[in-house]
Simulated scan of single mutants.
Amino acid sequence: MPLIKNRYGKGRVRVMRIHRDGERQEVSQLNIKAMVEGDFARTYTDADNSMTVSTDTIKNIVNVVARENTGLCAEEFCQVLARKYLDTYPQISSVALTSHETRWTRLSFDGKPHPHSFVLDGNGRPTVEVAMARGEAPTLASGVDGFAFMKSTQSGWESYVKDRYTTIPETADRICATSMVASWAWSAKPASYPAANARILDSLLKVFSTTYSKSVQDSLYRMGEAALAAVSEISEISMACPNMHFIPINLAAFGLDNNNDVFLPTDEPHGQIECTVGRG
């Protein structure tokens, strides 16, 4: 029987880099999955390991490249790492890397940023995906996973399909909240990946926060338009937004109206809204 497809690698390779620039230090904590494809079929079909690189070695190379490149942002680091595998092992034909970053935010005291103290930022994990094949141009996407945001008003859900299965009432004033997974594909290198990523997130949040939302779908499309307008180096942006629901609690048993003030938070089952916006 033929072996149709195979790849292997190392997942959850965690590494913290510290880059020192005089008194000031920068930290970057990454969780990396590195997968390779190439001339490895005989390991599966003939128990022949002679061409196969150990997954432990794949992990070790992450640490070596981290030591040699403490100052690179995640996007640049992952590209250097992918190239290292291809340059070191001719039997590897392509590499796919996925990186999730744990964000540490610099502390400030009396308005002055501290050179080496940080607090954990728990809202969302920046992501990087790199695919690099021998002899071909690499593809690169950045994004964020689990980035939560909400607004307490200026959101509605009206004029939708109604039939005998419909129970949800219309509203022109509801909480809108989500934990977004988003990624954007780079068509050119920006002057700074971190600065460009920050502009993209700022543009998404500005549209979400400052405009009325007729639906999550309505907001997502306009958010995508704003991100593409803000950063010319991306070709498209994909967003997946599970609703974080807040259900009005019935207080009639206590002789009280709710007045849209008190809610039960719940995240399942949840609406799942997804879209990709690209350049025409």
Score class of each variant (00 low, 15 high):
Ala191Ser: 14
Asp21Lys: 13
Glu37Gly: 15
Pro269Leu: 06
Asp145Leu: 12
Glu23Gly: 09
Lys10Leu: 04
Thr88His: 08
Ile18Ser: 12
Tyr44Asn: 07
Arg103Pro: 02
Ala253Thr: 12
Arg103Gln: 12
Asp257Gly: 15
Tyr212Lys: 08
Val262Gly: 03
Ala226Arg: 03
Glu136Gln: 07
Gln154Thr: 14
Ser192Phe: 01
His245Met: 05
Tyr85Ile: 02
Phe149Leu: 12
Leu3Ala: 01
Arg20Pro: 01
Pro242Thr: 03
Gly156Phe: 06
Ala34Ser: 14
Asn260Trp: 12
Phe254Trp: 15
His100Tyr: 10
Pro265Lys: 05
Tyr193Ala: 09
Pro126Tyr: 13
Phe149Arg: 05
Glu37Lys: 14
Gly111Pro: 08
Asp257Lys: 15
Asn69Ala: 02
Met180Ser: 12
Arg12Gln: 14
Asp39His: 06
Glu225Pro: 01
Gln29Asn: 09
Pro269Gly: 06
Pro194Trp: 05
Ala34Trp: 00
Ile92Met: 12
Ala41Met: 04
Ser238Ile: 02
Trp157Pro: 08
Thr88Gly: 06
His100Asn: 12
Ala74Gly: 09
Cys241Tyr: 08
Ser159Ala: 14
Met1Val: 10
Thr276Glu: 07
Phe40Trp: 14
Thr127Ile: 11
Ala41Ile: 01
Ala34Tyr: 00
Arg103Val: 15
Met150Phe: 08
Val65Cys: 09
Lys33Ala: 12
Asp163Leu: 04
Pro248Glu: 12
Val130Glu: 05
Leu120His: 13
His114Lys: 12
Ala196His: 00
Asp267Cys: 07
Thr266Ala: 14
Asp21Met: 13
Glu236Met: 10
Arg134Trp: 03
Ala252Gly: 05
Val62Tyr: 00
Gln154Ser: 15
Tyr165Ser: 06
